Amino acid sequence: MLVARHTASAHRTAVLLGAGSDAEDVIQEAFVKGYRKLSRYRGESSFRAWLLAIVANETRNLHRSRDRRYGLMLRAARVEPHPEVAEDNAVGAVLAGERRAALVRALRSLPARDRGVIVCRYFLDLSEEETVTMLGWPRGTVKSRTSRALAKLRGLLAVEEVSRG
């Protein structure tokens, strides 16, 4: 039941944190480790946050094992083009796709720590406390990093908007 409930979040986390095509392997390993360490879950945070912290660690292990210095930047999140555009005109669909692509490009260009906190808070919709658990950072660090990362992301999106014309 837990696997069924959390697979989508785990997969999205692995992909957004840079696992790319290896996301399935990462989440499988995370679920196995989570099962083996289930007795260590103390209930201090949600089970989802605890599990996603394992997924995040497994994603980092993937990059370390390949010894890629810029692993997270090179294998950043891929967004599959499945637009759920409510507008029924082609122009609206094209504009939505362009905005989504611009957001993904900007997200990819953020440093790994900034990208991680944005993914947790806004893509995975984790609470501040769940983000603290997942990333293993103090609450103040999560707050300040989120604020700075959002400012960087807004700046990158503004620069792209200006360059597009």
Rank of each mutant, 00 (worst) to 15 (best):
L2D: 03
V3E: 03
R5A: 12
H6W: 01
H6P: 07
H6C: 00
A8H: 10
S9N: 14
A10E: 06
A14G: 12
A14M: 06
V15E: 03
V15M: 04
L17W: 09
G18F: 04
G18V: 07
G18M: 11
A19D: 03
G20V: 08
G20A: 05
D22Q: 08
A23V: 07
V26E: 00
V26K: 06
E29Y: 04
E29I: 04
E29Q: 09
E29F: 03
A30K: 00
A30P: 01
F31K: 02
G34I: 06
G34Y: 03
Y35I: 02
Y35E: 06
L38Q: 10
S39G: 02
R40M: 03
G43L: 09
E44L: 05
S45V: 06
S45K: 02
S46T: 15
R48I: 00
R48G: 00
I54K: 00
A56R: 02
A56E: 02
E58V: 00
E58I: 01
T59K: 00
R60E: 02
N61R: 02
H63V: 01
S65L: 10
S65G: 04
S65K: 14
R66Q: 06
D67V: 11
D67C: 01
R68P: 08
R68T: 12
R68S: 13
R69Q: 10
R69E: 09
G71R: 05
L72H: 13
L72M: 14
L72V: 14
M73E: 15
R75E: 15
A77T: 08
V79I: 11
V79S: 05
P81M: 09
P81L: 02
E84H: 13
E84Q: 13
E84V: 13
E84I: 13
A86R: 11
D88K: 14
D88M: 12
G92N: 06
A93R: 07
A93S: 08
V94I: 06
L95H: 11
G97W: 04
G97D: 13
G97L: 04
E98F: 03
E98I: 09
A101C: 05
A101D: 05
A101Y: 07
L103D: 10
A106M: 04
A106C: 07
A106Q: 04
L107D: 11
R108V: 07
S109L: 08
L110S: 08
L110C: 03
P111E: 04
P111K: 10
P111Q: 10
A112G: 14
A112R: 12
A112S: 15
R113K: 15
R113M: 15
D114C: 12
R115P: 04
R115Q: 12
G116E: 14
Y122P: 12
D125P: 10
L126Q: 11
L126F: 08
L126K: 12
E128P: 10
E128Q: 15
E129S: 08
T131Y: 08
T131V: 05
V132G: 00
V132S: 01
M134D: 01
L135V: 01
G136F: 00
W137F: 05
G140R: 15
G140M: 14
V142E: 06
K143N: 12
S144D: 15
S144C: 11
S144M: 13
R145A: 07
A149R: 11
K152F: 09
R154K: 15
R154D: 09
R154I: 11
G155V: 05
L156T: 11
A158E: 15
E161L: 14
E161N: 11
R164V: 07
R164E: 00
G165V: 07
